[in-house]
Structure formats: C-alpha cells, structure tokens
Design a binder for these strands. Sequence first.
DNA 1: CTAAAGGGTAGAGTATGCTCTAAGGTCAAC
DNA 2: GTTGACCTTAGAGCATACTCTACCCTTTAG
Lengths: 127, 127
Amino acid sequence: MQIAELEQRTGVNRHTLRYYEKAGLLQEVERRGNNYRDYPEKAVERVAMVRQLKALGFSLREIREVLDALRSDSIDCEQGAVLMAEKKAAVDDKIRELKQVSALLGREQQRLEDSAAALREEGRCKG
Amino acid sequence: MQIAELEQRTGVNRHTLRYYEKAGLLQEVERRGNNYRDYPEKAVERVAMVRQLKALGFSLREIREVLDALRSDSIDCEQGAVLMAEKKAAVDDKIRELKQVSALLGREQQRLEDSAAALREEGRCKG
DNA sequence: CTAAAGGGTAGAGTATGCTCTAAGGTCAAC
DNA sequence: GTTGACCTTAGAGCATACTCTACCCTTTAG
C-alpha cells in the first residue's frame, strides 16, 4: 500500500511515517519502480504498536529495540530470549508502578467522595 | 531545605527543579529573606512522584493536573473526585495496555527459548 | 497535453523537557 | 575584606519527536 493509505489507516501523519522509517522503526518498506514506498499489510499493525508503546512512555529507541527483537529471525535465539525477557521485565516494572499510582488515585478519589458526602450533610468541603 | 540538598536527595538537577517550579509542579516553595528557595520536606516526595509519573509516560502537564488534584484542599470535592476518577481511569488503561505488551513479550520470549532448545538438538535458530 | 492528485527528498520549524552558561547577589570562614 | 561555596535570574543550547515547507517527479483523468 502507498503512504496515503497507511496514513489514513493508522491516523499517523505521512511525515511521521517517513520519520519512523528513517529511525529504523519500519524496516520492510519496499520501493516500486517509481520510487514510491510500498508498505506491506503488516505495517498497519506495526505502526499501531509503535504508537501504543510510545503512549506507554517508551522512547523510539527503546521501541526499536523491542521491534528488532520481535523481528529477529536472524539473531541468536538465546540472545533474543534474553532481550525479550529484559524488555518484559521493564514493562512489568512499569505495570507495578502504575498499579501503585492507581491505588493512590483510588484512595484519593474515595477520600474526596467521602468529603463530598459529608459536605451534603454539613456545608463545606474539608479536602 | 536549600536547592542543593533537594538536588542531592532527589538526584534531579537544580536547573530542572527550577524548571519544574516554573511549570507549576512545585508550588509550595518559600523564599528566605535572601531570596534563596526554601523547600519543605515534602518536596522530596513530590519530586519523586513527578519523576515516577514522567517515567510512566505522563507529560509534565498531565503530572501537574494529577498533583493539583491531589493537593486540592481548595477545589470542590465532587469535582476533585471526578478528576481523580478520570486520572485513575487513564492509568488503568495504561496498565491494561502494558499487560498486553507484557503478554506479547512473554510469548515471544517463550518462542525464542523453545527455538533455542530445538537448536541445541538440531543446529540452527528457526526464529 | 495538461491539470490535479499523490509521491519523493531535504531541510526548516515547533513543542517539550531538560541542561548549561553568564552575570551577579549572599554568606560563612579566615 | 576577600575568598569560595552557595544562591539568584535570564536566556542560550540541546535531544527527541514530530510537523511542515519547498521543490521537484509520477500517475491518472479529461
């Protein structure tokens, strides 16, 4: 598919798509005779993954490392497994931290709701 | 405490600390007669929270919103509870997505380990 | 053939988040 | 009272990740 279609299907600016390609995030981009890019179907999924990981706080560099490992038919299996385990550990750390933040926010929400309820009885928010 | 101590205790550059203050992330910074900043003990914790949320993919703007809500003795309780619920929902979404990524990485790790095991029997990594 | 739509590259510009430099004020120790 | 460690502000500089502009080529439709 051409860049316009990928742009439309992923919602990612074509300039950004070319930027990602330069950054090594999209490696299986063919060129037609006219030098136009020809993206495989998988590119849609791949771009989505990039955006998802980005939103989760990974830098393009880190995303590239993950994607490289996922695409590693070429590299050593043991080495790939180790890299994968490392990335997974980083993600799991992030999950643990986010759970703590979630719990904190949940407690705070509860506190404010309780205060709001008390307010309906008395008259002022006590924080 | 003075900026050097906060810098040392948080590991965050003093320029960055002043930048955070300008960005509204540190609001309870007093000034002494000599115009030196005087941070309360709580600032250590607060800076740590900023760094944690940053590492988890939040922009300074978002972090500010969360911290503002957490510090909201002034704003309306119901409103605060709603804001808190929104932030928590965003965090929980992030957790769900990260779990998917973690699962994907885990499967990939397994696949590579299996390949590595097969390799030890046969001869080449089949990805 | 030509216009319009779409593609290419190179490089400039922007937003965010630092990080550092310059120039100068404050303070404790000698 | 001067040195050195600490503080101040303003603003420059830098890395990352886009986002856009300029300019030119290709394809398609009339």
